[in-house]
Simulated assay, not measured.
Amino acid sequence: MPIDAAKALAAGPRSAEITWTAKDVQLYHLGIGAGRPATDPDELRYTLESRLHVLPSFATVAGAGAPGVIAGLSMPGVDVDLAGVLHGGQSLRLHRAVPVQGSATATSRIAAVYDKGSAAVLVLRTEVGDAEGPLWTGEARIFVRGEGGWGGDRGPSGRLAEPSGEPDRVVDRPTRPDQALLYRLSGDYNPLHADPEFARRAGFDRPILHGLCTYGMTLKAVVDTLLDGDVGRVRSYTTRFAGVVRPGETLRIRMWRERPAEQDGQARRAGEGRVRVAVAVAERDDAPVLADTVVEHS
């Protein structure tokens, strides 16, 4: 079997030094649609170096996306065809604000391997810290078609109950026809997002948008509309990739505020809260794109 679960879980962590600059942050922000309109003061926070703030989802590409999903496929015990790989979900927990420029050590390991029957799911956990301490923890769930069925643990479902009531905000965010070509310059060069021939081999009629591009566009929408444009309020962000986006389509982003005194069985400090989010493609009868999406904030 190309995935040896025991070997993958027993392998030691891998560490890599990563660096990034303000230019990397600006390129990422442009790749997720920032800068429209170009002179809007709210957009200049993402594009102009003299007032640059870092959207926390930049952490998924800091250091040109290494280690990332593709790097996880080179871990011991993992030998799979890239055409059968999809990004199944992503979570991010911030320990401090992401600096505009910096260097850090990223340490990754396969934290879990699940058998979904027709597929396997690898959980790649990455801890990133610099000289001052931890910066963020990321967890990518990598879905590998055709590699399940060995009788292993199916793992948790992770499905959440649907948000109740009408959303607090609904915004549409168009993607550009060349969005994937721009976004990939931040480090994710998977040919699924650029090469029509490879996309067809993977079962798609044409290249699709990176799930992490949609992930970043969604967080920006939440920050800009419900968190007063303050990127520092984001504490964590998690999602499940439920469908694909074709470059040029429009994201319809629905947001629900949650303000209960207790969430997940634990009392939360005053001022803390959560935003539930659902993302769909407007042109395809609201076909789901992101599900089970939660932004925790101060």
Rank of each mutant, 00 (worst) to 15 (best):
G216Q: 10
E132L: 12
D205C: 09
D285F: 04
G88I: 02
D188A: 11
Y28S: 08
D178Q: 11
L181F: 08
Q26S: 03
A62K: 04
M75I: 05
L86H: 02
Q101H: 05
G265H: 00
R173M: 14
G265C: 00
D168T: 13
T47K: 06
F241C: 07
L219P: 00
G248F: 12
H297F: 15
A291D: 14
L226W: 08
R176W: 06
L82V: 12
V295C: 13
G89S: 15
P207E: 06
A59D: 06
G68T: 06
T60G: 10
T105F: 02
W256P: 00
M217N: 05
L94S: 06
S164V: 10
G88P: 01
G12C: 08
W136E: 05
P134M: 13
A282S: 10
L209T: 03
A112L: 11
F204Y: 15
A140K: 02
R36I: 15
G72P: 05
D195K: 08
V54D: 09
P163V: 03
V222M: 05
A280P: 00
R154K: 05
L82F: 04
T218G: 08
T250N: 01
K116H: 14
L52T: 05
A64M: 15
T218C: 08
V244Y: 02
M75T: 13
P247W: 08
L122I: 00
T137I: 14
R284S: 12
R257N: 14
H297W: 14
P13E: 03
T250I: 03
D228R: 01
G152F: 06
Q179N: 07
L94K: 01
V279C: 11
R240P: 02
T47R: 02
R259M: 13
E283L: 10
T39L: 14
D79K: 10
V144A: 11
G31P: 01
M217V: 14
S50E: 13
Q179C: 11
R96L: 13
F198E: 04
L212D: 02
R169F: 09
V234N: 06
G68R: 05
V289T: 09
D115S: 02
V54C: 10
D42A: 15
A22C: 06
L192K: 07
D115F: 00
Y183C: 08
L55M: 13
Y237L: 11
A120R: 04
K7T: 15
D228W: 02
P196T: 07
R254P: 00
P56H: 05
L30I: 15
E258F: 05
F58I: 11
E272P: 04
E17C: 09
T107D: 01
G265F: 01
D292P: 00
R200L: 07
W136T: 08
M1P: 07
A112D: 15
T107W: 04
G133E: 13
G12K: 12
P2M: 10
Q90M: 12
Y28G: 09
V78C: 09
S118R: 10
V54G: 10
G155F: 02
L209Y: 01
M255S: 12
L27Y: 01
S186M: 07
V223W: 03
E197W: 06
T47Q: 05
D81M: 13
G232H: 12
V78D: 05
G88H: 00
V275R: 02
P41L: 05
H193K: 13
D40T: 03
